[in-house]
Amino acid sequence: MSEPLMEKPNAEANPTASTAGIVMDNRYLPPPQDGDGKIWVRTSALIQRSPEELYELWHDVESAPKWQEQIAQVTRTGEMTSHWVMRSGDSSIEWNSMILADEPGRRITWRSISGESNNAGEVIFEPAPGGRGTIVIVLQEFRLGKMAALWETMVGRNPKQAVIENLRHFKALAESGEIPRTQGQPHGDRGFVGGLKQSVYGEKIATPPGDSRIAS
């Protein structure tokens, strides 16, 4: 059988079966829907670093507090396990997490195994078409219930947006060596409405500190 289109000088092979479930047999797949007490978030970013470097950054769980909002401390407790502390103001929640799949330079999956958060996630590092950096795709799942509700109340961001913002911080840090911030800059009197707007815009959530040594 002859091909209907032979002339495509720069075409690259399509992803075969992206594990974050974005493409299957050349068809785009929409993200999983919330339901059965689970909420899902899928988000992606195009980052000008290699998949290997980005994998290394993500895999270094103890440095997560540098770029993940309100993660106060992460301690490695074993080859594949770690202990996470999330803090907001005076309150905190803690859980243990375990890496399920670890494919260097390509993919990591994890889930919580005990504690006050019930979550699971996957991150994929794929070379972008045309050699234009790395597409990082995060798929994360939270089991709703008292914990997730508590999380949202405590954290002041819904968990979906937190995943999106964390990937944004990861990208900014990996590309530019810092996470953009305005907290701590001068301003005049905000008044009641100004303060309310700050909360609504998510400006009261502490921007993670970053670390310039991470930049290329």
């Binding site: 195009l46 999106i164 305005t182």
Partner: peptide, 24 residues
């Protein structure tokens, strides 16, 4: 930022990494 895809393409005002409120 000088390092994202847009800065590298000289599309400086389209920089990815400088807006802390990008979600807005």
């Amino acid at each position: 930022c000088g390092n994202c895809l847009f800065c590298k393409k000289q599309l400086w005002s389209a920089c990815d990494n400088t807006n802390p409120n990008a979600h807005l």
